[in-house]
Design a protein around this nucleic acid. Structure first.
Lengths: 331, 331
DNA sequence: AATGCTTTGTCGAGCATTTGTCAAGCATTA
DNA sequence: TAATGCTTGACAAATGCTCGACAAAGCATT
């Protein structure tokens, strides 16, 4: 059904369109995740769907057909046999599945006991392989794929962070080149940035400004912070790396932010950083919290303590800290 | 750390590419990634597009034609056959493709094709507004939206580059903050990176390695080069900024790349850069071409000349240069 | 457990259609 | 003159179709 809303003479907004277009089998295969062989076999054996044909006998599937195939595929994953559910109508299938999914929250755990650890391990080694081959596209698709299989905390804590560490290690040990590392960084950065931008939060959400202070060039940490904060319901203003204190202050004031999150990764003995941190503290309006994290944060514990920053060691602590701050706001 | 400064000779190009301009088939082939044979075959067999003709019967394609061809190419990649999608309108094609990826609401504007200049102007001012408000998400959606309305050359030459340039200007003049500039850089970088990764080329495509040499921190130029090259059918290995000569050499050798594209934006008087450039030349296998571009390339013309690099001033020249190199390969 | 029977995903052979590519011969352009 | 473009016709690769075969997995019986 086509709901068309005419807003003015040159914009047409169409919602929820089920136009008359019919899809070829290859596309249906991709959309449903079923192989073309299976789709044809099911048709032959159970008349699961009976697609139209072109004049030259090629199959043309409607959107309803596709929906049914998708539902059947879901049903199989839940343990049903194709023979048992093949002749159910679309409505019956839908109710069947909605009932099932209510009963068990974690569908995947029952039938596909692939542990997260297993996935992570695999993804890690595949990723490193892609990095070694300078295959940016491959790496990206691996990460995308992983992000759909893993929960966000696991994705960040068990995959992304270890991957970044590992790449750093291999680089230091000379097992991969600077070029490999650059390429990996680019892709991971792009991936995280997309992830960050994909969160949509309410306008009333509290604001956290994420950046690395002046002298700190490694922005992946700040991006990770951003992703974690966004997933915790914060509105994230991501400013990238190497940001002078005055700039951080200006943004916080302008947007009335609640938290500044700083990522400190390298070097861990920058003599100028303490001064920069103090300056940040000095510029920030009172009531704005500072959270610091990153591999080298430990190198500056005394300054961080001095300026009243919360130091977090991992994304879980970060989450907790953000939560605490958020609640205190209303006290 | 990414400053937004780029070439400023965009005026001429934007005039050339202005709205009513019609493109000959070879150019269309490059822009769409389709061979001229295929374009003609589709026209003959399905009347996919019906380009104007010169008095002497040569085809002249409009931007809408090009857009349609691009969309069709995308559709093929998703498994559609040309016969099935050939007669769809531009709007139908767009909705078909967006359904593949999103499947949600969609806004079309085909009913009164606004001129590119108008769009660009609007998008530019909206973008700057979003940047001033630290609204990364808004900026990103503006760019995404623009990319669906504009052809790729116009998007790059008339929108992205001017935007980058404008932001640099505003920053220098103090009208916006470093923080605004950082945020804009992040978003634009992410946008370009996505664009780059979205091109899929055949495995047999010649390879170009894109990077900035050691000492050059500004990677947007290298990304733009990457996007242009990818749209011209090259396989792009994007290595980011600040890459030592040995690394570039190693990658080129390992992947048997045909071209190294270097972006040189700032500073324009780095005393170490000439040495680095010579080193690159020295390390590269013979037969590998070097292309250099970017705002500050002019500052190193003699060295670039010495090492036999092609210096390009804009994306059009870049395209031409790539094409020339590509053809020479087979002679 | 072991045995058979059934279900079901996968594959290949042989044929038809679709589609990308190419060459030949001529016209236009630079 | 060399390069580019046009049309036509031909060809080969890719894709899809049907049918049949096969093996892994599930299930029930012994």
């Amino acid at each position: 059904m086509n709901h068309l809303i005419l807003t003015n003479n040159r914009h047409l907004i169409s919602l929820n369109m089920a136009n008359g277009y019919k899809y070829p089998i290859k596309v249906v295969s991709q959309m449903t995740g079923l192989s073309v062989h299976v789709i044809r076999a099911w048709e032959k054996r159970y008349s699961v769907v009976e697609p139209d044909r072109t004049e030259t006998n090629r199959r043309l599937y409607s959107e309803l057909d596709i929906e049914k195939l998708k539902l059947l595929n879901d049903a199989l994953r839940l343990g049903y046999h194709i023979g048992g559910v093949a002749n159910l109508s679309l409505a019956e299938l839908r109710s069947l599945l909605s009932k099932e999914t209510k009963g068990t929250i974690e569908i995947k755990n029952d039938f596909a006991p692939v542990s997260s650890e297993k996935i992570v391990e695999e993804v890690l080694s595949e990723s490193l392989e892609a990095i070694k081959n300078y295959d940016a596209k491959k790496l990206e698709s691996i990460l995308l794929n992983a992000s759909s299989k893993l929960t966000q905390p696991i994705l960040i804590e068990s995959l992304i962070i270890p991957l970044v560490y590992k790449v750093g290690e291999l680089w230091h040990s000379g097992e991969i080149r600077v070029a490999n590392e650059h390429l990996a960084s680019s892709v991971i950065r792009g991936f995280l940035f997309n992830l960050l931008e994909s969160y949509s939060v309410s306008d009333s959400a509290p604001i956290v400004v994420s950046a690395t202070p002046r002298g700190q060039d490694h922005e992946l940490g700040a991006l990770i912070v951003g992703v974690v904060a966004a997933s915790s319901g914060w509105k994230v203003i991501y400013l990238g790396s190497n940001l002078p204190a005055e700039e951080i202050g200006a943004v916080v004031t302008h947007l009335n932010a609640r938290v500044v999150a700083l990522s400190i990764v390298y070097p861990n003995d920058d003599p100028l950083l303490p001064r920069e941190l103090r300056k940040i503290k000095q510029i920030l309006p009172s009531g704005v919290s500072i959270i610091a994290g990153g591999r080298s944060a430990n190198g500056y514990l005394d300054v961080l303590d001095e300026i009243g920053a919360f130091v977090v060691k991992n994304s879980k602590q970060l989450r907790l800290e953000l939560e605490t701050i958020r609640e205190n706001k209303y006290n």
